[in-house]
């Protein structure tokens, strides 16, 4: 719903892409795919991925492809793009993707979904952006940050993690300057939630002129959404929901809209404005 019209268009069907690299990073895994046929994606978009061999290997899961945001895009010297993905192993799908080795093939469909708006599109008076990322949600924030750097738009990044074992990609994906970290276990940076850092920043000088972006676990996104709503600040959130298809076919990725009813997150999102949705925690027990 953010800026759908000009999102790059996915080739029809899935394609096999070669794994160029896979490496460990702070408890997460980063792997690189060579997408020779696909277009360059835009910040906020995601792909549906499935390892080509042994998907549905053990016990019949994973069966469906998994929605994964890209964490970085670079030009591939021989055409197409190289895509980096940041993976937190939380179940059979992410584990299988994390086990892929250089030279393996991975089925790819996408890029899907919409893109982030630019700060001035989100907040007319915005001088810059505040990016709030949590856990694996730092991937789309890293992509957005790069885009803003390329456009000469200032941004500050606030990143939050549970502990050191769930904090991959920071050094590789974010420059050190203008990035502040929070660890819930206090092992580094601020001890506590990344939303504490956001509140501190917003109490400072120029908070009224910021455009805010966030991606992370549902509870964090809901906290960010409320902080922004309370202050009348526009915010774009990159949400997650269970997805079977990624292209509008299954209607499984329902997210409740503020006005009632549901949107399909894969085609109307994953980037939504905070005031478009009723909650960032749809389906979570806390709001059950």
């Amino acid at each position: 719903m953010a800026a759908e019209a000009d999102s790059p268009r996915a080739p029809f069907g899935r394609r096999a892409c070669e794994v160029a690299d896979s490496r460990e990073s702070g408890g997460y895994r980063i792997f690189t795919l060579i997408d020779a046929e696909g277009p360059a994606p835009a910040a906020g978009q995601f792909y549906m991925l499935a390892a080509a061999p042994d998907w549905a290997g053990e016990g019949g899961r994973p069966y469906l492809p998994r929605a994964i945001s890209y964490a970085r895009v670079t030009e591939n010297p021989k055409g197409g793009v190289r895509l980096d993905f940041l993976i937190d192993e939380v179940g059979p799908g992410t584990s299988r993707l994390a086990r892929m080795k250089q030279g393996d093939e991975c089925f790819v469909a996408g890029p899907f979904g919409n893109r982030f708006s630019l700060p001035r599109q989100l907040n007319e008076g915005a001088a810059g952006a505040i990016l709030v990322g949590g856990g694996i949600g730092i991937a789309p924030m890293a992509v957005l940050r790069r885009e803003l750097v390329n456009r000469g738009i200032p941004s500050r990044s606030l990143l939050g993690f549970r502990d050191q074992a769930h904090s991959g990609g920071v050094d590789e994906l974010f420059g050190c300057e203008e990035t502040r970290l929070a660890f819930e276990d206090g092992s580094y940076g601020h001890k506590g939630f990344v939303t504490d850092l956001l509140l501190q920043l917003l109490e400072g000088d120029d908070s009224g002129s910021a455009a805010i972006y966030s991606c992370g676990p549902p509870a964090m996104l809901e906290a960010v959404r409320r902080i922004c709503a309370d202050r009348g600040l526009p915010v774009e959130l990159a949400l997650e929901s269970p997805m079977a298809c990624g292209y509008g076919a299954c209607f499984g990725c329902a997210v409740p809209k503020a006005e009632g009813g549901y949107m399909r997150l894969c085609v109307d999102g994953p980037v939504v404005r905070g005031d478009q949705i009723a909650t960032a925690m749809a389906g979570e027990p806390a709001v059950g």
Binding site: A56, R61, Y63, S241, P242, Y262
Partner: peptide, 14 residues
């Protein structure tokens, strides 16, 4: 509007 989330659950091979 359709049903409340969640709407999907993956099973072995389905």
């Amino acid at each position: 509007p359709g049903n409340a989330p969640y709407r999907l659950w993956e099973t072995p091979s389905g």
